[in-house]
Design a protein around this nucleic acid. Structure first.
Lengths: 190, 190
DNA sequence: GTCTATACCTTGATAGAC
DNA sequence: GTCTATCAAGGTATAGAC
């Protein structure tokens, strides 16, 4: 926290303006000129603070992606059990709901988001696939795999634009979706 | 239908080249110059056949969007029943699976896809929301709404890039996901 | 009716002056 | 840290050749 009459934190202002505009119009449709205008500087000045438009996007969605990765990575080396599966799905859902507001913007711009990840993308896809296989339980059949994929996908309803965001509390959303996902998971004999 | 040794159906060739390139590299990353080059004409010629890059995309994904809309619209005025819900979910899933191969490309470029729909988008969102409400059954609680949203989302696993496309047959995918979605639907007294 | 040449404007990005 | 100037590439528009 800094005092109000500051030398003016331009980098933060850029971040803020970009978040606003990306959310409102999407990544591709927002030009650096617009962002610069809103901050009250010139386009070129942006480049002093961020190396590229993608890096700007990365800064905005960075923690989201990292948080999801962290949760999925926890499956690595962990023994499967119904309780463990529930625990990981719950954490996964936590991250989604925490970012519920910016969800629609995120999904709309997956392309750009993926591009901004770029070097990590192969690792992420691998992690995500392993997470899905882990979820399916030991020695999964292809039906098990599909059900696990469906369970993860169901959690994604939390950031669906079709759900009235005002009328539904985070807690209710969490409880209902976690329950739904668990139902989908292949049932294994203990 | 025209005979094979044709004056060369440029429009179709453009469509074909665009489909190839969009699928391989995505919409934004494919330039009109690339497409023109592959067809063997100049950029400007594209504009004789398609008014804009977006119209080109629209031509490619057109039937997919229309098919989904048509299924969702069927819910309008239809009385809810478990059988009717199953029927609509099944049709919805049919469309997804039919486009399974291009699914990853589609999701990656949602932004562009949405933009290409543009004028219709408000109507589509409305239709989609009504479909979701209908699915939730008569007098739905918010939990019912969430479960319906999760059911639709679960069907989306059919176009997930994380599922090994070779090892799983369309039929198996259909049966498993339809079953999963139905499980998620709120259970209503008959 | 089909295509090309050419030019226009916006965008993301860089270099260098202050 | 910020600006001006400039760039290449992209989507778009049109005038005109055949």
């Amino acid at each position: 926290m800094q005092h109000a009459t500051n030398p003016r934190d331009t980098k933060a202002e850029i971040h803020h303006a970009a978040l606003d505009l990306f959310s409102a119009q999407g990544y591709e449709k927002t030009s650096l000129r617009e962002i610069a205008e809103q901050v009250g500087i010139t386009k070129a000045s942006l480049y002093y603070h961020y190396k590229s438009k993608q890096e700007l996007l990365r800064a905005i969605i960075g923690t989201f992606v990292d948080d999801i990765r962290e949760v999925m990575a926890r499956a690595d080396g962990l023994d499967w059990s119904p309780a463990a599966a529930r625990e990981l799905l719950s954490s996964y859902l936590d991250v989604l709901i925490r970012n519920r507001a910016s969800g629609p913007a995120l999904t709309r711009d997956i392309g750009a988001v993926l591009a901004s990840i770029d070097e990590d993308i192969e690792a992420i896809v691998t992690t995500s696939r392993q997470f899905q296989v882990w979820l399916a339980g030991p020695d999964p059949t292809s039906v098990d795999r599909i059900r696990a994929a469906a369970a993860i996908e169901a959690l994604g309803a939390s950031i669906s634009a079709e759900l009235p965001i005002g009328e539904i509390s985070d807690a209710e959303l969490h409880a209902t979706l976690l329950d739904a996902a668990i139902t989908l998971l292949p049932s294994k004999p203990d």
